[in-house]
């Protein structure tokens, strides 16, 4: 304890001499050790998945959902403190709903993802607010960021994958406890994220469909999970694609079962080859 922090890790509103916010970094640690969550942006939609370690045999299978909808067309899954994730989802839903109330249209995740922000700098010079301020990802990320600015609060202990399909097409973002966010073609957060990301990199992400994505994500989840170390797990998976008509829905149980069986078969075959 004396080697790290040395008094600079007590408050999120105090920098360390070398310019770090320890509390924010600790929050990221909380997210790193929780169950793996995977997000995949496909050519025709998105897939979200989360590995749920079975904490007790008394838990009802299929209950205790972890992937949440922020709106019809946006899903979110976070790794870390569960209640922090639910709180962020509540905020995201409020943002999405308020946008709908105001404009009568679904909120996009990002404003003009195809265009750099500098294009609108002339408008910002006139005193307009941030050009991204009406994008869902920006609103949610800024909410998280606010919790890194005051001594009286703690940062969110979660890494969050937000993905959706809006009028600009499929979108996927990861929000960190610091409030920073990045757009990805695919990403993983939580325990084993490095291995999962390495596997995701091998996919043909420009051409993959959601149906193929479901199979791949199931395979990666089973590959990364270590039954001996972490115990049994349940795989929860949602998607948005042509099959769901643009809605964020759970992958049908039959398809999920097929995907998991295929994943297990692939793993066994790989083991035999070794």
């Amino acid at each position: 304890m004396s080697s790290i922090g040395t008094g600079y890790d007590l408050s999120v509103s105090t920098y360390s001499p070398d310019g770090r916010l320890f509390q924010v970094e600790y929050a990221a640690k909380a997210a790193e050790n929780a169950g793996l969550a995977i997000g995949l942006k496909c050519s025709d939609g998105i897939v979200l998945a989360v590995e749920k370690i079975v904490q007790s045999k008394l838990l009802v299978k299929g209950a205790n959902r972890r992937i949440m909808s922020l709106d019809n067309h946006v899903g979110m899954v976070s790794s870390g403190l569960l209640a922090d994730g639910r709180h962020l989802a509540k905020r995201g839903r409020e943002e999405a709903q308020s946008y709908r109330d105001q404009y009568g249209a679904p909120m996009t995740l990002k404003v003009r993802p195809d265009k750099p922000a500098s294009v609108v700098s002339s408008l910002m010079a006139k005193g307009w607010s941030s050009p991204c301020s009406q994008a869902l990802i920006e609103r949610v990320a800024m909410y998280e960021h606010a919790y890194t600015c005051y001594g009286s609060v703690r940062p969110f202990g979660i890494s969050t994958i937000m993905a959706g399909v809006d009028k600009t097409g499929p979108q996927l973002y990861v929000v960190e406890p610091s409030g920073s966010y990045y757009g990805y073609r695919a990403s993983a957060v939580g325990k084993g994220k490095q291995l999962a990301k390495t596997e995701l990199e091998k996919l043909d992400l420009s051409n993959i469909t959601v149906k193929q994505g479901v199979m791949e994500v199931a395979r990666i989840a089973h590959l990364v999970h270590d039954d001996n170390k972490d115990g049994n797990f349940e795989l929860e998976m949602t998607w948005i694609g042509p099959e769901t008509k643009g809605f964020h829905e759970h992958v049908p149980s039959q398809l999920l079962q097929e995907a998991e069986e295929a994943a297990k078969r692939a793993l066994e075959e790989a083991m035999e080859e070794d």
């Binding site: 404009y103 009568g104 249209a105 265009k115 609108v120 408008l123």
Partner: peptide
């Protein structure tokens, strides 16, 4: 809207504003 979204509002959005 244009400033915040970096694009002109769709017709539907303007109609929705009038509607509300």
């Amino acid at each position: 809207y244009a400033a915040q979204h970096d694009s002109r509002p769709p017709v539907h959005t303007i109609a929705s504003l009038f509607q509300s």
